[in-house]
Design a protein around this nucleic acid. Structure first.
Lengths: 426, 426
DNA sequence: TTGTAAGCGTTATCAG
DNA sequence: CTGATAACGCTTACAA
């Protein structure tokens, strides 16, 4: 407690004289009572006046505003929360903050929510692989937030039930939680597109670098994208060779290592599809390090249209990232405003689009160059002044780096009950 | 208010029966009074027992814990804040969340603070160029946070004075605020290193893509890095040609456009130094699009060691990013714990290191290839199946993508009073 | 060791 | 239109 048994009395208030007082760093912040006294009204009136409620005469409101201004008064959000039960804070549950997809979405969510007077509390649960990954429990959530956005995390059953008990409005992005609003893309279809692109070019021996379908934080995404690949191959009468089916951890490094493995096969693939652009970029690095020319000897496709996909000339399936954040935030705001947490859950599926760049081409029939012995080992951190570097013509710079997400073809499909995998693919 | 004039009485409490009650979504969360009643002690005792204070018998504590558990009780942080005046929330002021440097640092800060029981509130003020950039004022900060970290933003005078009035502990990263603790790198020295590297290779005609030194959010960084370039050139008896001195907005696209300008000069540079890796990557794209071979016809250097620097084979000056976040968070925690906001401000300067990759080499005396007419215009979004792509041997993948920041040579230099630009460079 | 009760700064009810 | 005041849920000085 700040100063029990020592209520601020008249003698205390006398020393400052209002505005003057607030100017000094050491002085205690003024409370609604100070304003009431200064304006000559009751605290109730101050509260009403300051919040713009009606039933306050213009004259009074004016006096109150003036007094508040003079005292540098700002209402304590803590006290207001205690009284109202609302916090004006929204939690975002995510597995990483330092990856492009997540950072971009959070940025957009924060932007939308801030304009509506909400603040964002980060609930980073980590990648779940280590032992110190945060678990979502009551303590972290109860009474702190008004709503929650679950971003790219497949929650465990216990966590989902905690969320349900909290009875908060919940919106998920790229993650499913039965009964909650959801926004995302059709991961199956996205992977299908990428695969079909390679098939159309004539590739038959296609490698896949996917996410971990068993115990990844992004399990659902990993599963769906893998399914898309299988579907597309099956439709062409092909199957994914087990030896060309690699798993990585969604990172550049992971994709790099996985590709090293694929390219070392006795019968290597003529094309590699990665479940994310970051992994695809890793594949490009592996190819380069091993002396494979892209797209001459190897085609590479990713999914996401990462900010750095264009700089690598990477062909990919673009998903609208900022839009997902914006829509999720708006859906949550709608619930927050109306108090309707029930209603039939909605599932917003945004469309994706193939973006063709310079990392894919028809497979060559001519043999690839002999693997240079020790090629990978020979390269190090020293500058290679004489390294041959023929430029790959790339696209022109995008009009604007930010905000250029394609949002065409968005579809909002109402949905009832639980989401079935195929329900989102008409 | 939740239910004025309707205090929860015995009849209310009778309907649930403790634990059973909390299981149902609709039931109100239990309060400290419920626990007190269930454990047969006073609320004061519950408070003490649950917070691990002494002066509580083991037996009592046990009963209280059991009751709290049964009731799914979790203390209201709001009420606790109101009573103690502390919020356990730290604000982070930043200009962007969707750029690698910022996302990575925030991620690290969040991690450190979370382990100490603090939560992170994002205060994204935007890039300040638009009219809707957020201004830091009382309303946003007062009574909501216990401390603040200012990340990569040069605050305006008014904002700095608001911060001072709030009397909160403040730590800045890559930004200076007189009298506050600071952590960062020596931007002047970093730019000097990069320049010296090019000079050592034999380059004399060096182009520079810098940040905006006049009205950028990151003004100080822009100024310091530019100064480093000028210093190094001057030390070599050279000067930065005005026509080779370009300004961009720290983005890939910005660097791309700036480089297009530089490469179009009648006497183009043989090397380009960009003030950030993102801009340097843009330079690489421009060079590629215009048919310039890197490093054969153009050397490119950046600053940062962005996550994607390695994938582009970009030579750069690495700065320890996560370390900056970690150290800043720890400094803030120290203040929070000790209550010492005064003390002489400290200035922690972390060391940087040149990372040599494949984007730099000695300048060639042979003429560069004739500019292919319309080379830039010829490339589009269509796949270029026959694009020549000779791979550039690159480094092997890093051991671990995250956490691999070099932290050797960190120096912590005590500092009193205001920070002078040259004070950090012994 | 434990209980009592004031106080934190608002909001919202109800009476004027 | 305004004021008095209970209540929000917790912490803590002080008394027991």
């Amino acid at each position: 407690m700040n100063s029990p048994r020592a209520p601020r009395g008249a003698e205390d208030r006398a020393r400052g004289g209002g505005a003057e007082r607030a100017r000094h760093p050491g002085s205690p912040p003024s409370s609604i009572r100070d304003v009431a006294l200064a304006a000559g009204v009751s605290v109730a009136t101050v509260s009403r006046a300051l919040r713009g409620l009606d039933r306050v005469s213009e004259d009074t409101r004016e006096r109150v505003l003036r007094a508040a201004e003079a005292l540098d008064y700002v209402a304590s959000p803590t006290a207001a929360s205690l009284a109202t039960g609302r916090t004006s804070v929204v939690g975002i549950v995510l597995p990483f903050l330092d990856r492009w997809f997540f950072a971009t979405i959070v940025s957009e969510i924060e932007d939308v929510l801030r304009r509506s007077g909400f603040q964002v509390l980060l609930l980073n649960i980590g990648d779940r692989s280590g032992e110190d990954s945060m678990v979502l429990d009551q303590r972290l959530l109860a009474k702190r937030i008004d709503g929650i956005i679950v971003l790219g995390v497949d929650l465990e059953a216990a966590e989902a039930s905690v969320l349900r008990r909290l009875a908060l409005p919940v919106v998920t992005i790229s993650a499913s939680l039965p009964g909650c609003d959801r926004v995302g893309i059709d991961d199956v279809a996205a992977a299908e597109s990428a695969t079909q692109h390679l098939l159309a070019l004539g590739h038959r021996r296609i490698g896949y670098v996917g996410g971990d379908s068993s115990n990844d934080v992004r399990r659902a995404t990993a599963v769906d994208r893998a399914r898309g690949v299988h579907h597309a191959l099956a439709a062409a009468g092909l199957a994914l060779e087990p030896e060309l089916d690699a798993v990585a951890d969604w990172t550049v490094t992971g994709g790099w290592r996985a590709a090293e493995g694929l390219l070392a096969r006795r019968l290597p693939p003529t094309a590699i599809l990665a479940a994310s652009d970051e992994m695809a970029i890793g594949v490009l690095c592996a190819a380069r390090a091993l002396g494979w020319s892209v797209p001459r000897h190897l085609s590479v496709v990713g999914i996401d249209d990462h900010e750095m996909a264009v700089t690598h000339g990477l062909t990919t399936v673009a998903q609208p990232v900022r839009s997902q954040g914006r829509i999720a935030a708006e859906m949550l705001l709608a619930h927050l405003a109306s108090g309707t947490r029930a209603a039939p859950a909605r599932d917003v599926v945004l469309s994706t689009a193939m973006v063709l760049r310079s990392s894919t081409a028809a497979p060559r029939t001519e043999p690839r160059p002999r693997r240079r012995a020790g090629a990978a080992a020979a390269v190090g951190r020293s500058p290679r002044a004489d390294a041959p570097t023929t430029p790959v013509p790339g696209p022109t710079p995008p009009e604007s780096q930010s905000q250029s997400q394609s949002q065409s073809g968005q579809t909002r499909t109402p949905r009832g009950g639980q989401r079935a995998g195929s329900a989102r693919r008409p």
